Computed example of a mutant assay.
Amino acid sequence: MPRLNISLRAGKSEAYRQAILDSLYRAMRDALTVPEDDQFMTITEHDASNFRHGTAFGVARSEDLVYIQIIVFDTRTPDQKKAFFRRATDLLGEHPGIRPEDVFINIVEAAKENWSVGHGLAQFA
Rank of each mutant, 00 (worst) to 15 (best):
I6S: 06
I6Y: 03
S7N: 11
R9K: 15
G11V: 00
G11R: 02
G11I: 01
K12T: 01
K12L: 10
Y16G: 02
Q18H: 11
Q18D: 12
Q18R: 13
Q18G: 00
A19M: 02
I20Q: 04
I20G: 06
I20P: 05
L21T: 10
D22C: 12
D22S: 13
S23F: 03
L24S: 01
Y25K: 10
R26P: 05
R26E: 14
M28Q: 13
M28R: 01
A31V: 02
A31G: 07
A31F: 13
A31R: 00
L32Y: 06
T33E: 15
T33F: 12
D37Y: 13
D37G: 11
D37L: 06
D38V: 00
F40D: 02
F40A: 12
F40L: 12
T44L: 12
E45H: 10
E45A: 11
H46F: 14
A48G: 05
A48D: 09
R52K: 02
H53Y: 15
H53Q: 13
H53K: 13
G54V: 06
T55R: 09
A56S: 10
F57D: 14
F57P: 01
G58I: 00
G58S: 06
V59Y: 07
A60G: 02
R61T: 08
S62H: 11
E63G: 07
L65N: 06
V66R: 05
Y67H: 11
Y67L: 15
I68R: 08
Q69T: 13
Q69C: 14
Q69I: 10
F73R: 05
T75R: 07
T77Y: 05
Q80G: 03
K82E: 12
K82Q: 14
K82F: 03
A83C: 08
F84N: 04
F85W: 01
F85Q: 01
R86D: 08
A88C: 07
A88H: 07
A88S: 06
A88L: 06
T89M: 08
T89K: 07
D90T: 01
D90R: 07
D90F: 00
L91N: 06
E94D: 12
E94R: 09
H95L: 08
H95T: 06
H95E: 15
H95P: 04
G97P: 05
G97D: 15
I98V: 15
I98D: 10
R99L: 11
R99W: 01
R99K: 14
R99H: 10
P100Q: 08
P100T: 00
E101Q: 12
E101I: 00
E101H: 11
D102L: 08
D102K: 14
V103S: 09
I107S: 05
E109G: 04
E109K: 03
A110H: 04
A111P: 08
A111M: 04
K112G: 06
E113K: 13
E113H: 13
N114W: 15
W115Q: 10
W115A: 09
V117K: 04
V117W: 10
G118T: 05
G118H: 05
G118W: 01
G120H: 06
L121G: 02
Q123M: 05
Q123G: 04
F124E: 03
